[in-house]
């Protein structure tokens, strides 16, 4: 019985991911192109503002590459949350008329963003090669960044989608929370800009740690195990906690949505 349940759960995830990918790109031809255009356009804009006008010091790293490397991780997080925050509301009909584990809804929307992440990553590597950056064997560590990134994203999507389904105001509040998170995460500036006494903000923010170690890996070929292992543990813990909370209140969703 247990084995069958897990099998059905995975099958549900699969069909929901396929459904999301199909309906996302069926309607528009440009749809797929937007995956490429979005990070490039944001990187160009931010490059002008923070690279040319405000001139953030990134010590020898071209600012365009610097900001693009941060955006690969940040955009993946932000877009997944923006997509999955309404996942329960969009599927209200399904929730009130059929019985299935509701957590597959936000999780499938998050997982459907993995191809986008990989494409963004390839764009970044392409520009790195183009500007003469030497890429070496340490890049094989990149897949390990995806595990904590997607665990953390999935955890937040569970919390946000649930809260949003019950208090519709929360969707709007999420936009502001994401804005705050964007500025306290070293996306447009290096992590070293944060004063020592606020260091805890970086250490407690998995995205900040991931972006910082990602840049160390990309631009200095350094693998920062001392930050990397804690961030994996932290993401696992946050995910387990969020899933526990979601499962605890899952039964209330059909009555309250």
């Amino acid at each position: 019985m247990g084995g069958h349940k897990i099998e059905n759960y995975l099958q549900l995830l699969e069909v929901f991911i396929i459904r999301e990918l199909k309906s996302r790109y069926k309607a528009s031809i440009l749809g797929f192109l937007w995956i490429i255009l979005y990070p490039l356009i944001t990187a160009i804009i931010l490059n002008f503002i923070f690279g040319q006008f405000i001139r953030i010091n990134t010590s020898n790293i071209p600012y365009f590459l610097f900001v693009l490397s941060g955006l690969v991780i940040w955009n993946s997080f932000q877009q997944s949350i923006n997509l999955s925050k309404d996942s329960l509301i969009w599927n209200r009909e399904l929730i009130v008329k059929s019985s299935f584990p509701k957590d597959v809804l936000p999780l499938s929307y998050v997982l459907s963003k993995i191809p986008d992440f990989i494409i963004n990553l390839l764009i970044l590597l392409f520009f790195c090669l183009l500007s003469g950056l030497e890429l070496n064997i340490t890049l094989l560590f990149i897949p390990f960044f995806m595990i904590p990134l997607f665990l953390f994203t999935a955890a937040i999507s569970l919390l946000v989608s649930f809260t949003n389904a019950i208090f519709r105001d929360f969707g709007r509040i999420t936009e502001f929370l994401l804005m705050i998170l964007f500025y306290i995460t070293p996306v447009v500036y290096p992590a070293s800009f944060i004063p020592e006494k606020y260091r805890i903000i970086v250490l407690l923010n998995p995205l900040a740690v991931l972006i910082d170690s990602f840049r160390e890996l990309l631009f200095h070929n350094k693998v920062q195990f001392e930050f990397f292992l804690p961030v994996i543990l932290m993401s696992c813990f946050i995910f387990a906690f969020s899933l526990f909370l979601f499962k605890k209140f899952e039964n209330k969703i059909p009555d309250l949505i």
Binding site: E7, Q11, L12, V15, F16, R19, S23
Partner: peptide, 28 residues
């Protein structure tokens, strides 16, 4: 409970049938 509840409008009849059957617990 309601016939066709939760069908996705953009997807075809067959694609919806696969989703629906999965929700009812039928194996691939």
């Amino acid at each position: 409970i309601e016939l066709g509840a939760g069908f996705n409008n953009e997807l075809t009849g067959q694609e919806n049938a696969v989703i629906n059957a999965t929700i009812l617990g039928v194996e691939k």
